[in-house]
Design a protein around this nucleic acid. Structure first.
Length: 434
RNA sequence: GCCCGGGUGGUGUAGUGGCCCAUCAUACGACCCUGUCACGGUCGUGACGCGGGUUCAAAUCCCGCCUCGGGCGCCA
């Protein structure tokens, strides 16, 4: 395997061994071609039947599509070949035969439904446009990490198996932990606050979150990747600055380092890095603007949560990313701080893409007694959260942060129709394998 | 959690009571073809999610189940 040459690196005039998948076989009678595909691209293998060893021809043309083969031969310049070069084989080795009846068509001639594709992800990923999504995903995560580090945040990982939920009311997946009741964590919220309160000060985490809601939509997953940030001595405005920087960094990375993948996805022309300076609308302005669009049958009043239809109307109206700030305290979680001058108003904010919500964040309640009172107001037992609240008694700085939906970021950035396209092996209401 | 819409060869589809022992494409098998690049041509194999019911007659209508997708709620 050490002597293997990538198809893209095969130079005319030398002998080379290329290995990969049989993309297509075109048998024209006296001459036949195999298109061999690997991670770097494709190359054509030529079989001139009269001039070549019968066994070699039989082996080469006897393989089924998507079989893995290795071909050794002379690489020659050939203007009639798709890439300008082709290989005349001296030997062909079938490394792994593929069943001739494939569950989906990696050459993309026939579409497959998402469900069929997810059942056969390995074959699905052989399509360049599917692979491009995950190459870009990898690049986005790299860029996001780098941006957090530039902002002096330390990457952390927190437990996914927990004794209690974050917000109490949300549906959690129960599990058994050595005979004790436990849950899959829905958010690193409480843990990242505990670390922001140490003198690490600024932390970020990119990791899985689990939500047991039985929703069935193209923008929800039951296991998602959360991109979390928490910073000591930050207020909600600082957290919004960070959220915006991170989102812009993701777009910049895709634009700068994934030109080929964007081209493959047909996005090269239209892809735009959003301008800095996402507008910040207060909740009150947001409902006024939604009401002014006339899209909703019933006018929103102060205190209502924004319905999906309203979010869409506002998204169309704004036409780009925007923040909604100063939400009513009542519809934000207990750990979000209220404004000093008006305790009906919270410091909570959301970052919206015109299609959906991407981020939720705010300044946190760092005063012990107010925090405990918040638990009680929410109908939660503060004793269960003592591991958390007690650390607010030993010097907890003001802090703020947010959670950004990783798949939603990728989905909106690439204009994907379904969030499942942004995960290799999505977990949703009906899917538990593969 | 509530609501809506689907399930037809390996894959993607057409077919809304008799014209259907089911359309088309692709895949698969056989044969022909020396420059294909979605190669082309001829022939062939292959399917109505499961169970019950209505009807002279069901892929088609009804009921239950299974399964997939979507809308809302909620959220990232």
């Amino acid at each position: 395997m050490q002597d293997r040459t990538y198809t893209a690196d095969a130079e005319p005039g030398e002998s080379a061994t290329v290995a990969g998948w049989v993309h297509e076989i075109r048998d024209l009678g006296g001459i036949a071609f195999i298109i061999l595909r690997d991670v770097s691209g494709k190359i054509q293998i030529k079989f001139e039947k009269d001039e070549m060893d019968d066994d070699l021809v039989e082996t080469g043309l006897g393989v089924s599509r998507e079989s893995v083969i290795s071909v050794t031969g002379d690489v020659e310049e050939e203007p009639r070949a798709p890439t300008g070069v082709e290989v005349t084989p001296e030997s062909v080795e079938v490394i792994s035969d593929a069943d001739p009846e494939l569950p989906l068509d990696p050459s993309g001639k026939v579409d497959a439904e998402l469900s069929t594709r997810l059942d056969n992800r390995t074959l699905d990923l052989r399509k360049p446009e599917v692979q491009a999504v995950f190459t870009i995903r990898s690049e986005i995560l790299r860029a996001v990490r780098e941006r957090f580090r530039d902002l002096r945040a330390t990457e952390i990982t927190t437990p996914k198996i927990v004794a209690t939920g974050t917000e109490g009311g949300t549906e959690l997946f129960p599990i058994t932990y050595f005979g004790e009741e436990a849950f899959m964590n829905q958010s690193p919220q409480l843990f990242k606050q505990l670390i922001a309160g140490s003198n690490v000060e600024r932390v970020f985490e990119i990791g899985p979150i689990f939500r047991a809601e039985e929703h069935n939509t193209p923008r929800h997953l039951n296991e998602a990747t959360s991109i979390d940030f928490e910073g000591a001595f930050c207020d909600q405005s600082d957290a919004m600055d960070v959220a915006e920087e991170v989102v812009v960094a993701a777009y910049e990375a895709a634009a700068e380092n994934c030109a080929d993948e964007l081209e493959t996805l047909g996005l090269a022309e239209e892809f735009e890095v959003p301008n800095d300076g996402f507008p910040r609308l207060s909740y009150e302005e947001a409902i006024e603007r939604i009401n002014a669009t006339g899209e909703l049958d019933e006018q929103l009043v102060w205190g209502d949560d924004l319905p999906t239809e309203g979010e869409k109307a506002l998204g169309d109206d704004v036409g780009g990313h925007y923040f909604i700030t100063d939400w009513p305290s009542e519809i934000k979680p207990f750990y979000i701080m209220d404004h000093d001058e008006d305790e009906q108003l919270s410091t909570g904010f959301d970052l919206m893409h015109p299609r959906m919500e991407l981020v939720s964040g705010g300044q946190r309640e760092h005063r012990h007694d107010e925090l405990v009172a918040g638990f009680e107001q929410q109908g939660l037992d503060p004793d269960q959260f003592e591991y958390y609240t007690k650390m607010f008694k030993y010097g907890m700085p003001p802090h703020a942060g947010f959670g950004l939906g990783g798949e939603r970021l990728i989905m909106t950035l690439l204009g994907l129709d379904n969030i499942r396209e942004a995960v290799l092996f999505p977990r949703d209401r009906q899917r538990l394998s593969p």
